[in-house]
Design a protein around this nucleic acid. Structure first.
Length: 487
RNA sequence: GGCCCCAUCGUCUAAUGGUUAGGACAGCGGGUUUUCAAUCCGUUAACGGGAGUUCAAUUCUCCCUGGGGCUGCCA
């Protein structure tokens, strides 16, 4: 299957865009086909410099590298590859010109000289009459001589498609099923703007035909323009591709996902520290389900499980809490060594000692099951690299029934027990043994020993366990941190 | 206003012409546990309304209601 993703470079990659791209990419992978990236830069007024590059990079970050079209070269720069290029629509103006001429010649399109002022007036009048705003075909009445004369004089104009109003257009969408549109409700859409650039409608039809796309995936917001595209394919005498419109992503209030209410840029999620695995997993489950109870999907598992007939039709509200849950799941799936390697630079940035820390992976392991985002790591490991600020209020703990007066006594017991472990034997096992026997002989509850120890070592209300933390600090360091509370 | 689309727990969703309407996240309760997290167990919670077809409708049909999308020389 040849699928494609055609973003317009007007900003960051949208979350909904990523999901559409994901579905298209999955279909290509599943069928051992081709996933093409095309840049739809036909609106000069909205174009943002660097946006295309950004979008490609984001796609690559997500694991959805294009097979054809616009992609990144070895140096990370934007390049194009493929036999149906160019893949930037702005470089294809001559192509669109050729095909509009063809449409003009076959009377499927016509020149329109109406000014935007006139069109505005016309629409207002129609609205006032409670009619659907539609082009009134003033310029369709123009004689051939008149048109030629005005063209020759260089008058500004657009080219519109001439919609056969008597027709009924029937299509079957891969997701929405059979659809029917009446011709008289379809406007004579502008195909070519006065600046010589095509509109989306023309560019889509021409390019997807020329680029041999056989499955078009796009958002549901395109459903109402579908008949125009079909009409265009027919006017050209081309076989249309199959279409799979994807249901919309929604805000909490069920309106179309918007910046106003949500983070919509994939970049926002990257910046917050989400893993591509988590975001992809999350997006895949929005509007699609595997038909089983499996919730965790790698890209490869998605390729195997995905199919359009399990994509459903209604929009999906973003459930960010589920995203966070998935993020946690994927965080914990990372192999320990890799996890340590990922967080090391972050920790070292704050605590240079971490870069040469021989115990770094063991320390990292301690936080892997409690972390949600990588950037939390430096803070979660800080007490390994600097002496924490500890307050007596923290060590004393009413829930554990430890009063402030108990603290020196308890910590000196701990000090005594840990002193007996030799430097050489300092390990999780020995530390645990020493403390457990202390607990047994002292007659105190575990928490009464371990809470104060952990608090004194970390200065934190929450942290990994006392045994683990103590064993991964040096014996001297542990005794130092305890000592100051005794007397 | 017109055209088009959609409708199961709060959210993502499954299933079925006959089920105790299932799962996940969140919530709640509990276990484990030195704290938190993680983990385990349990639990609250849904077929928008009305007709029709049928022995039987959440499921099929129609209407209503609700929601959404489009209605640009944007994509």
């Amino acid at each position: 299957m040849r699928t494609r993703f055609p973003p317009s470079p007007t900003g960051f990659l949208h979350l909904g865009g990523l999901r559409t791209a994901l579905f298209a990419w999955l279909l290509a992978r599943k069928t051992k086909g081709t996933f093409t990236l095309r840049i739809e830069d036909t609106d000069k007024t909205r174009e943002v410099a660097g946006a295309a590059k950004n979008i490609v990079r984001t796609l690559v970050w997500a694991g959805l590298s294009p097979d054809e079209g616009v992609m990144l070269d070895a140096a990370g720069q934007v390049t194009e590859r493929g036999e149906y290029g160019p893949y930037h629509q702005s470089k294809r103006l001559d192509v669109y010109k050729k095909y509009t001429d063809q449409l003009l010649a076959s009377r499927h399109a016509y020149h329109c000289f109406c000014t935007s002022e006139r069109l505005d007036q016309m629409r207002k009048a129609q609205e006032a009459r409670k009619q659907a705003p539609m082009y009134d075909r003033t310029c369709l009445e123009l004689s051939e001589e008149e048109v030629q004369k005005r063209l020759a004089s260089g008058e500004k104009h657009v080219i519109r498609m001439k919609v056969p109003r008597e027709e009924t257009i029937c299509v079957t969408d891969e997701i929405y099923g059979p659809l029917v549109f009446k011709g008289h409700t379809i406007d004579d859409q502008v195909l070519m703007k006065s600046d010589g650039f095509p509109t989306y409608h023309l560019a889509h039809v021409v390019d997807d035909h020329l680029m041999k796309t056989d499955m078009v995936n796009r958002g549901e917001e395109w459903l109402s323009s579908l008949p125009k595209h079909l009409l265009l394919f027919r006017a050209f005498g081309w076989e249309p591709p199959r279409y799979a419109h994807v249901p919309l992503l929604l805000n909490k209030d069920r309106t179309k996902l918007s910046k106003r209410q949500n983070d919509v840029a994939v970049e926002d999620y990257i910046r917050k520290g989400y893993l591509p695995e988590a975001l992809i997993n999350f997006l895949a489950l929005l509007g699609w389900n595997p038909g089983t109870t499996q919730e965790l999907f790698s890209l490869q598992e998605l390729i195997d499980a995905f199919s359009l007939d399990r994509v459903h039709k209604s929009g999906a509200v973003l459930d960010l809490e589920k995203l966070d849950w998935l993020q946690g799941q994927w965080m914990r799936k990372i192999p320990v060594q890799e996890f340590a390697a990922r967080i090391k630079p972050l920790v070292a940035e704050k605590f240079p000692a971490a870069s040469t820390d021989s115990k770094f992976s063991e320390r990292a392991t301690l936080i892997q099951e409690r972390i949600t985002f990588f950037p939390e790591a430096p803070d979660m490991l800080s007490y390994f690299y600097e002496t924490p600020k500890v307050s007596l209020d923290l060590i004393a703990n009413s829930k554990q029934k430890i009063s402030k007066e108990d603290v020196p006594k308890i910590l000196s017991l701990i000090q005594e027990a840990l002193s007996r472990v030799s430097d050489a034997a300092w390990s999780l096992r020995e530390v645990t043994t020493a403390l457990e026997s202390l607990i047994a002989t002292s007659g105190m509850k575990k928490g009464q020993i371990l809470w104060p120890l952990r608090a004194a070592l970390t200065g934190r209300e929450y942290s990994p366990g006392a045994y683990e933390v103590a064993s991964l600090l040096s014996k001297t360091e542990v005794l130092d941190r305890i000592k100051k509370w005794i007397v």
